[in-house]
Amino acid sequence: MTKVLVVDDSNSIRDMVSFTLKSAGYQTVEAKDGQEGLSKAQGDSFDLVISDVNMPNMDGIALCTELRKLANFKFTPILMLTTESSTDMKMRGKAAGATGWLVKPFNPEKLLATIKRVVR
């Protein structure tokens, strides 16, 4: 089963992403910030990581950088969930090793269609 790590400090966004993914048959693990996301990622492996950019404690960019240092996450797709569709933000994400980005407000169908580009 495809396992997705969903990291967002907003409960409702996290719930929605998670709900959408679950309804499409994915398995999800949630974390409320980068710090928690990282600790959940350590010693586990995921098929996909979807993370918000703006979060307390550790933001999405830093999480991305940290995850890429883990052997398990060298090739794992990491998508940044962001309202900032500016190229600047995309570049920062890319530089940190992000696979791609999802622009909020997302709609569920779009989310599911989009992640097909990186996972089964």
């Binding site: 090739f75 794992t76 990491i78 090793g97 097909k116 990186v118 089964r120």
Partner: peptide, 17 residues
Amino acid sequence: LAKTGNDPIFLFTALAE
């Protein structure tokens, strides 16, 4: 390319749709 987590096979799958 693969180091950013992208895999061409998924891109092609998406294209095939």
